[in-house]
Design a protein around this nucleic acid. Structure first.
Lengths: 341, 341
DNA sequence: CTGAAAGCGCTTACAG
DNA sequence: CTGAAAGCGCTTACAG
């Protein structure tokens, strides 16, 4: 507002103002090559003064990089998972901003990666973040064929992919252990989805490893409860065994279980306790709120973005970062009759 | 795979292959300026043959446009609304791809528009799509101050903003009318959120206009049920009047209402019927599924994106498009005792 | 209808 | 430590 009708200043302008060459200004900014400290300071002062911002497009063209990363998100997703992607995306955007990068949306469908192809062919991004890898690994394949650096969230079937993931195993172990600590010991039932997904395998592993060899607790396990039919069957078999607590692999499964229990007039936690290995808004707005594991999707996203941008700046490529952590939220759905609050 | 170690061809290469100049090739591609049909065809054939794709960055630099649009999404959103944004985003991305544009994510918080500022200053986008305008209009302000073209989804306090919105009024009128057609006529209760939001005002208007002057139907209205306290109060007052059907302004409110009814042991639809002016996954996975209005977020997103890109290509700026439409989903929650199916 | 040339706004060898 | 110049890969007046 102070300087109304002024064009955006360019490198040239600030060079002229200082009576030096563009090259020098450019070097001062980038920090590449030797620059007298004094010169550098003059330049920075002038930049501030004239409110100069480099034209990223021009920078891109000469540096042969876009300062954009692509973010693959599913277009055919059940909307149930939307909160994850949305939150994840905000984490990614935030991290990008920190590095003066931007995130470009790439929608993919099951077997339709045209958007991804377009972006690659148009060279609009320097690297890609895959928030949900296709189960056949086709996305990673496309990416590596084109020499496009990428990072995947969760697991990848491509063993050479750089990944960032939450520690599902550990989380599930801890939640299960917590449940086993109750007195009297819980008779736990586990209800889990499609075991082709690595997440579900991790959940299973986590659950099982909470039972030390010395433990003699009973446990009832139903995996693969992904279809309506299998689910119904699993639940009725499960209930027949009268577990004191049922643990669900994810929030979706849990919602369905809750509906079923509700229909049968079973009260939570009085008649049966319920916990979930994956949180969701629905679960904590449910009454009673459901004990569950919370994974910080925003943090996951920003960690992945950071990793990718490191890769792009030719950084040490990275020893596998420690897996992202989680929180355990103990809520009313698993309160013991004896417990208060 | 057929031509393994070949660099990406450039304009120059295809010009050379054809023995003509870059200018001509460029013109053939862009369609600007006169070109002999024959030449054009040769060029296109060669492009296909050599699998040429223009370098968008170079194109950007010389055309002074980025072929990117920014999409403002909320970072501080209750995750409840996530499905809307996610779906919207996929619609946007799809539309962008059609025009060879890309969508860049811009996260905003209540009073923190730094990401937006960055993107503007870095000139990374040609225009911006605001999926959720700040209630004080500060986003639109920032945009217009910077001469950045934009389109907002929903309403804007800035009267000169280009907007794309769903027809909430019409939808609500139709759903309400439908409910009024039942025999015996329903005694309708309306439960609506904060009336500062224009959506809620539209909903209210829609609801009311379903009651013609000749109608003598009873109606009970509670607005502003946005806090926990007001909600609880509104619901108990409402129930005291024994409505035969309660209509909720949105899915969130509806979820809460359902929980309350459930707690009171009221069955749906036997004891009371329920409908919502806004659909969500939660509502249709609820048992029984809830009658509601469905707005196509993907279509909304793509329409808005299309409009923005029209603006950017200097198109007729657009007479206000007709509002985006909706669907009415009649489900079990509003079945009359007498009705079948 | 077509070409040679300048230009978009940066970066970066190459010489000092 | 600094400058002049070429280059990134397109587009587009300007001349034919």
């Amino acid at each position: 507002m102070t300087k109304p009708n002024q064009k955006k200043p360019q490198l040239e302008d600030i060079a002229a103002a200082l009576g030096i060459s563009k090259s020098t200004v450019s070097r001062a900014i980038s920090g590449k090559g030797r620059i007298r400290a004094e010169t550098r300071e003059k330049v920075f002062a002038c930049i501030k003064e004239m409110n100069y911002r480099p034209n990223m497009i021009a920078k891109s063209l000469s540096e042969q990089r876009t300062y954009n990363i692509g973010v693959v998100i599913p277009m055919d997703q059940s909307e149930f998972d939307a909160p994850f992607f949305q939150t994840c995306l905000t984490g990614i955007a935030k991290e990008c901003a920190l590095h003066d990068y931007d995130a470009v949306v790439i929608g993919t469908e099951r077997d339709n990666h045209t958007q991804l192809q377009r972006v690659i062919e148009n060279r609009k991004v320097d690297g890609v973040l895959v928030t949900r890898p296709a189960s056949d690994g086709s996305i990673e394949e496309l990416l590596s064929e084109n020499g496009m650096p990428y990072v995947v969230l969760g697991r990848s079937v491509h063993s050479d992919s750089v990944i960032v993931d939450s520690d599902h195993v550990k989380g599930c172990t801890e939640l299960t252990s917590y449940l086993l600590m109750s007195t009297p010991p819980d008779k736990l039932g586990l209800l889990i989805g499609n075991m082709e997904y690595t997440v579900n395998r991790s959940r299973y592993t986590g659950f099982m490893s909470a039972f030390g060899s010395s433990h003699a607790e009973e446990r009832l396990i139903f995996t693969g409860a992904d279809s309506e039919l299998k689910f119904t069957k699993a639940v009725s078999m499960l209930l027949r065994e009268k577990p004191s607590c049922i643990v669900c692999g994810d929030d979706m499964l849990c919602m369905k279980l809750l509906a079923t229990l509700n229909a049968r007039g079973m009260r939570i936690p009085e008649d049966i306790r319920v916990a979930s290995f994956y949180d969701s808004v629905y679960l904590d707005s449910y009454s009673p709120p459901i004990t569950s594991l919370i994974f910080d999707a925003a943090k996951l996203g920003s960690a992945a973005a950071a990793k990718l941008m490191n890769l792009l700046s030719g950084a040490p490529a990275g020893e596998h970062l420690p897996l992202m952590s989680f929180e355990m939220l103990i809520r009313r759905s698993t309160m013991n009759p004896g417990q208060n609050k």
